[in-house]
Design a protein around this nucleic acid. Structure first.
Lengths: 217, 217
DNA sequence: GTATGATTCAAACGCCTGTTTAAAACGGGC
DNA sequence: GCCCGTTTTAAACAGGCGTTTGAATCATAC
């Protein structure tokens, strides 16, 4: 019988944690296996290669996270005055919630996720993009519906900015923590979410470059 | 006589370009020196170590860029209605201009810069932070002056989001290029600047969490 | 020309990487 | 008891890394 998920899971946890601290490339299999209490060869046995491990680390969390995002999106009232805030919350909350999750490794994933957003490695970006593409399309569609005066290009730019602010926030808000001298509570996900939504909602609502801001073309 | 800046400069160019494509850690000295037409030992001779090279790559561009930012900030009319846009432009334009600069390596620096923002390596972040700290303080002061209703925490969060959107934009707008199917002109710095400023200005102006949005406390 | 300091060069150093191997240990079915 | 597929183990592999060395080359000053 296969499926002794014990060391397999330990490896994922250790990898997730170490990837988030040192970066994917810099975290070696020797570190990871030692941290997981497993043999060096275990990674290649269970995942085929380091690349396979990377893929597994992301897949494990991305799928449930994006499912949750879509679940929350379905509950949004697109007619409401604060529809923009509701959509943003649906997109951001499932990620930000991980920041304060109990096992340390999960918290690491949020950091890892934000950094992976701008990974140099084509491989990593491809993995994430495949996993997240449908989610992005669905959220873009929602924004398109409630912000019809925006051009398609504007919509994409703004979603791009949104992603940048989000990724930067989850991956290095600890920099802000040190720098702000106690003015920012970077450990409180509700605070982060509130600040992010407030900022991004205003940005999404900004007047269009084309002249007619209040009416669809 | 010392100061044969020929290979020294070639090394900086090659490093800048390769760092931006593969990441700092993944770009090897063998790649870099070969790309620069220099000997492997040249890096250690001219810069002492790979770390020294990294430091030099950043310093070469950061100082002039931040000088230009501060120069433009001095010209901003803080009484004007579009003061927020003016400040944002002063901060963003010097970086975005590099994206379209003529030598390929310079363009690379913008990408590198955006990615370095969330580098795992403490070393790299320290280098950048030292170089940029005064600039950040000056821009924060300007925002504080024209947005007095914001709390200190809110100001920092919003500047943090600003940095995230900016970094993400310069480091991986090529992803957007491929994904957008021609709707976004990611090669046109004026277009990028316009979209960014429009979005971020609205975000900076968003109502404060505390109840009094129009008046200072 | 020759001495001098700066620069380049090929070669090697020791270390760490991801991966592979073949043998050992384990664990339930018969 | 033994068998067999799964999992673990220690050891080695080939190759890349940043760095060091000491001799060769170059440019200049005398």
């Amino acid at each position: 019988m296969t499926e002794h998920t014990d060391t397999r899971e330990s490896l994922l946890d250790a990898a997730e944690s170490l990837f988030s601290v040192h970066g994917i490339q810099a975290a070696s299999l020797r570190q990871i296996t030692q941290h997981a209490g497993a043999n060096l060869a275990a990674v290649n046995y269970h995942f085929g290669s380091k690349d396979g491990l990377v893929r597994a680390v992301f897949s494990r969390r991305l799928r449930p996270m994006n499912d949750e995002r879509l679940r929350q999106l379905e509950l949004v009232d697109l007619e409401a005055e604060d529809a923009v805030e509701q959509i943003l919350t649906a997109f951001l909350e499932p990620l930000l919630r991980l920041v304060s999750e109990k096992p340390e490794g999960v918290r690491g994933f949020a950091r890892l996720m934000g950094r992976a957003w701008s990974e140099p490695s084509e491989e990593v970006r491809t993995i994430i993009l495949e996993e997240i593409r449908e989610t992005i399309d669905r959220f873009m569609a929602a924004f398109r519906q409630i912000l019809p005066h925006l051009t398609e290009g504007e919509l994409m730019w703004r979603f791009h900015f949104l992603g940048g602010a989000m990724g930067h926030t989850v991956s290095c808000s600890y920099v802000l923590e040190r720098y702000s001298g106690g003015n920012c509570h970077t450990k409180d996900p509700d605070e982060i979410l509130d600040q992010l939504v407030r900022f991004l909602a205003a940005g999404m609502r900004a007047v269009s470059r084309v002249k007619a801001p209040g009416k669809a073309h």
